[in-house]
Design a protein around this nucleic acid. Structure first.
Lengths: 141, 141
DNA sequence: CTGGGTGCAAATGGTTTGCACTTCT
DNA sequence: AGAAGTGCAAACCATTTGCACCCAG
């Protein structure tokens, strides 16, 4: 079922603003900040307001159609149908590498078995040192 | 070496404000928000300003004496000598359980071996469903 | 036609900054 | 003495909210 239909099914209206926001989130592979999204929406719908973008994101998130995460200290959003994945963010150079979902499956199982905790294994951000920077770091002294 | 000495060694001054802030972070086991910390500092140093608290936290964090993390969408700080641990945060009831550092060691090793990535395995927050809520969730329908 | 959704403008809350004054060292 | 640190007030920035109008169903 498309997002549009999900919205309708739950009794929400499908306004031009929402259509455009969903559309952008669909086609934009990257993780957008609310502001970046607003900038794009502005070009397609004259006169949109930031508050509409925020309100829509909040709605979509509550419906599980959009995932909110934090990268670089900023909030980013992306469509939830994208393959789930995680990030390895380098504390030094700031580069972000992707990590397939499976990598955390062992952990997920451990938490479930030992603690009865069902972890949301979506879109984790793990900070640390990337290969390049860790090498630089260790040869420094 | 005590925090006080670390500050001095790096050429920073040891003011009453800083002394009190360090003291509170030392004795307070919990994770404090900047505001909660400010409230406590206020009682011991008349006329402190929030900005001083923020500036001090920034300094201490940059020296690695204090760790900043995000829980419940709020920024929290704690003294970095506390045993490293992680959190399991329930998305439904909001309760936070602690998780010993070792639990993530397998993951840490995997990342190092497969990606050459040295993860900062300090103070992670994993969101999901706690045993109680996950049970409630599954019996709901 | 009617209530959900929007734009607007103003408020919010947490954090940062410029500046003159104070205080460690 | 002199730079580092502070308090104060104002600025900031992302996000939220109240309200009157508007349009999707």
């Amino acid at each position: 079922m498309s997002c549009n239909n999900i919205l309708k099914a739950k009794g929400y209206r499908l306004t031009p603003q929402r259509r455009v926001i969903l559309d952008i989130l669909h086609h934009e592979g990257a993780h957008l900040t609310a502001d970046a999204l607003y900038e794009q929406v502005k070009d397609k719908v004259a006169g949109v307001d930031r508050s509409t973008v925020y309100r829509t994101l909040e709605l979509l998130e509550s419906l599980g159609l959009v995932v909110k995460a934090e990268i670089h200290g900023a909030h980013v959003y992306h469509h939830s149908e994208e393959g789930h994945h995680h990030h390895l963010k380098c504390r030094v150079c700031g580069k972000v590498a992707e990590l397939p979902e499976e990598s955390l499956e062992v952990l997920s199982k451990t938490l479930r078995d030992q603690y009865g905790f069902i972890a949301d294994m979506h879109h984790h951000v793990i900070t640390g040192l990337c290969p390049i920077c860790s090498q630089a770091e260790s040869t420094k002294h």
